[in-house]
């Protein structure tokens, strides 16, 4: 687990009844709250099954998006299963590998380690907010040029982590790049290309 990822999320307690009620009531409005209470009460009564979804609105890539999720669903699963935003990948599913890296309120977070209901009212940005294949973001373009991907499953997470890193560190050294991207893991072994890609992206973004 990287120490440079969102501190706020790390200090939050794990899923608890109080935790998700609080999250839902702050952002979800009255309806969501009452549904959440019903669901929570149902769970407290030992009824773990059932269609216990709550309606929430998430602000994703600049657009308010309505969806229904169970309170226990992670932001990553909500994006992937409910909204077909599948750039962020589910790999370790416990905040280690970075394949699900997205931005919440301008900070990188592991989407697998945030509940969807806790993201209500926040600005969520996924890799789909960056340019597509026809109009690549400079980070994505540098990844292609330096062949910083093989199977490509870790790539969207790395691209998001690299973009966020460069936003804060526009002119990094190689060592800073290595430290800054230490919260992500690649299995195919594409780090050599990645190091070059991030350094090149920093140059092209500064010159843009």
């Amino acid at each position: 687990m990287s120490s440079i990822k969102d501190k706020e999320k790390q200090t939050k307690p794990a899923v608890s009844r109080r935790g998700f009620l609080g999250g839902a009531s702050v952002g979800g409005g009255l309806l969501a709250t009452s549904l959440a209470v019903q669901e929570a009460d149902a769970q407290a009564a030992g009824k773990l099954s059932g269609l216990g979804e709550v309606a929430i609105t998430l602000n994703i890539n600049g657009k308010p998006t309505n969806l229904a999720v169970e309170p226990r669903v992670t932001l990553l699963d909500a994006l992937r299963h409910k909204l077909d935003l599948t750039g962020a990948k589910r790999v370790c599913d416990r905040g280690t590998c970075g394949a699900c890296t997205i931005m919440v309120n301008g900070k990188t977070v592991y989407g697998c380690s945030v509940l969807a209901i806790d993201a209500v009212g926040k600005q969520i940005a996924t890799i789909e907010s960056l340019g597509g294949p026809g109009k690549l973001h400079p980070v994505s373009a540098a990844f292609v040029k330096h062949d910083a991907q093989q199977c490509g499953y870790c790539t969207p997470g790395f691209v998001m982590a690299a973009k966020a890193f460069l936003d804060k560190n526009p002119n990094p050294t190689r060592e800073q790049v290595q430290k800054g991207l230490s919260g992500n893991i690649c299995r195919c072994g594409t780090y050599v290309g990645m190091r070059e890609a991030v350094l090149e992206a920093s140059r092209s973004m500064r010159n843009a």
Partner: peptide
Amino acid sequence: FDRLDGPQKASGRAKYSSDLN
């Protein structure tokens, strides 16, 4: 040559079977 599916993968648009809905 740059790999042809590179832009799809590096923009998160490549659909793996695990991405299908």
